[in-house]
């Protein structure tokens, strides 16, 4: 069964000591039999997103098992729209955002401008639910409003866990363009509950490598009491469908 990791970054992490270079990331993935990864350069989070996206594309051109995820920082304003068009022209289909690290809220006009532009292309947008602290209830409700407003986008939400699971189930039921990444889905039957309530076609495996342990997240999917077909959807088929990539 193929495993694709939809949540991977690489580069230098300035906020604590971490071995996070691309080779280390690839080594970790290989240890867990992860065959393909959606990758995004850390440089694009903290420094220059243009340079970061070039780094991402370069890595992906050299390794066909890497799928590029671009990022822009809405705070910068200048160059954001052009960079998005450049990324689409380069074949990028997924865009990821880092509001926690960049200190901007979801209800933020420059971000909405970005989403308007992406909406015209129908991209995959990867956003974190884990912003604003541990008990951050309401974030998913805010993300649901984005899903309603930008209905040509597909949103892949990271950081769902036991605490926000009720919100996941409700907004997931109401907004079919919301999808959920599983790295933090740590309640005893979280995979099973989401599969039963929303369907396995709404879940996507990701690990948050190199920040989190792959061994914390992957066994929860592999050992879940769901069908093999449901596991295959979560581990690879769904993300390929969202990206429009042939398996």
């Amino acid at each position: 069964m193929e495993i694709i990791d939809a949540n991977v970054c690489f580069g230098f992490w300035p906020q604590r000591r971490l071995q996070s270079d691309l080779e280390q990331v690839k080594k970790l993935a290989a240890e867990h039999r992860i065959s393909r990864m959606l990758v995004c350069s850390i440089r694009g989070i903290f420094a220059d997103f243009t340079e970061g996206n070039r780094e991402t594309l370069s890595a992906c051109w050299q390794d066909p098992n890497l799928i590029p995820v671009a990022t822009v920082n809405p705070l910068r304003y200048f160059g954001v729209a052009d960079e998005i068009e450049t990324m689409f022209a380069s074949g990028v289909k997924a865009f990821r955002f880092f509001p926690q690290e960049q200190h901007w809220p979801y209800e933020f006009a420059p971000f909405h401008r970005v989403l308007q532009q992406l909406n015209a292309h129908g991209a995959l947008v990867i956003l974190p639910a884990r912003v604003g602290g541990h008990q951050n209830y309401g974030v998913l409700t805010a993300l649901a409003r984005l899903a309603e407003r930008y209905d040509k986008l597909k949103f892949l939400i990271t950081g769902i866990f036991y605490g926000n699971l009720a919100e996941v189930l409700v907004v997931g039921e109401d907004y079919p363009n919301l999808y959920f990444e599983t790295h933090l889905l740590n309640s005893p039957d979280g995979i099973e509950v989401c599969t039963a309530e929303l369907g396995a076609d709404r879940l996507v495996y990701g690990s948050q490598t190199p920040f989190h342990y792959i061994a914390s997240s992957l066994p929860l999917v592999l050992a879940a009491q769901i069908s093999d077909e449901a596991k295959a959807q979560i581990l690879s088929k769904n993300i390929l469908r969202l990206l429009g990539v042939a398996s």
Binding site: P188, D189, Y213, A215, S216, L220
Partner: peptide, 16 residues
């Protein structure tokens, strides 16, 4: 456990 899946923390230790 029974709030979290034990596999979540077991994985942290196994991968350390």
């Amino acid at each position: 456990s029974n709030l979290l899946n034990p596999g979540f923390t077991i994985g942290m230790i196994e991968e350390a």
